[in-house]
């Protein structure tokens, strides 16, 4: 790889690099908005990284480029040694809305990725695993319920299962729990941490909540807008596993304050 780029990157001291982004820029042709400029980023295996930044600084754009949903205007995106040039099997994604399909039961929604990729028979074979996943996220007994009978939090749990059923190596999460109330949100975050540790998954989370970023992450990418760019990568050295009680410790508060300060600096631009 490009050795001169390495010093600009701050990687977590965990596994080998999984995602490597170099000089990634994106200018939307439609309105010539420079959504991203020269983003360098390395995600290591098993690490949890959050992106934080004001609205419109290009977080979703970055995520979509990483997921292979849209191409970058410039730069290079490599996942597990192979360039990303379109949607990939080893990527799992989750959005702000649960987006469960109302004509399918919870378990049918969860095996949908399998149905799309490998057909109906494979989806049927994956049912067993879907039941297990639903059990893990506390939805036992709701397997055959239609989504309109699930609460917002339950629906998000189900959509986590849908993301996990294909055993993706990386999880890309775009504000997955921002529609939930604070209590269920904390619960879901702990759930997410547990799942990531269990599956040794690499996670990349877009969030607006500094607390959420700090409690979950090994590294926090602070972005600045116009043009969207990485201002700083902050390491979080809190011990793992993280618990909600840690949110009351002074270390936690310090990191939160620091990041808030970094974000505020960008606001008057």
């Amino acid at each position: 790889m490009n050795t001169e780029l390495v010093e600009n990157e701050v990687g977590a001291p965990l596994g080998a690099p999984v995602y490597e982004l170099s000089r990634v820029s994106k200018t939307y042709a439609r309105n010539l908005v420079v959504a991203l400029e020269g983003v360098n980023l390395t995600l290591r295996k098993g690490s949890f990284t959050s992106v934080i930044g004001s609205s419109g600084c290009g977080k979703s754009t970055l995520l979509k480029i990483m997921a292979g949903l849209i191409p970058p205007s410039q730069g290079r995106v490599v996942l597990q040694g192979k360039p990303v040039t379109g949607p990939r099997r080893d990527i799992g994604m989750m959005f702000q809305q649960a987006t469960l399909f109302p004509w399918k039961t919870a378990v049918e929604n969860i095996v949908l990725p399998i149905e799309i990729r490998d057909g109906k028979a494979a989806a049927k074979a994956a049912m067993e695993k879907a039941y297990e996943l639903l059990d893990i996220v506390g939805l036992k007994g709701f397997e055959n319920v239609y989504p309109n009978e699930l609460s917002g939090g339950m629906a998000q749990r189900a959509s986590i299962c849908r993301m996990l059923i294909t055993e993706p190596a990386v999880l890309l999460l775009d504000e997955p729990f921002s529609a939930l109330d604070e209590l269920s949100r904390d619960m879901m975050n702990m759930e997410l941490q547990r799942i990531c540790t269990e599956q040794d998954a690499t996670a990349f989370l877009v969030t607006h909540s500094i607390q959420e970023a700090v409690i979950l992450s090994d590294e926090i990418v602070v972005m600045k807008p116009r043009p969207g760019r990485v201002a700083e990568v902050v390491k979080v050295d809190l011990p793992r596993p993280r618990t909600l009680e840690m949110m009351t410790t002074p270390e936690f508060g310090e990191i939160v304050e620091y990041i808030r300060g970094q974000l505020d600096k960008g606001e008057d631009m």
Binding site: K64, A67, L69, G86, P87, R88, R89, I91, G92, M93, F95, Q96, Q97, T99, F101, W103, L112, P113, E115, I116, R117
Partner: peptide, 24 residues
């Protein structure tokens, strides 16, 4: 979101039409 979801699942145009757009 539904469109992006189907893209990330690698669905073909036909699959997206039949399994998502038409039922929706």
């Amino acid at each position: 979101n539904a469109r992006m979801l189907f893209k990330t699942m690698g669905a073909s145009r036909m699959q997206t039409l039949i399994k998502m757009k038409l039922p929706t």
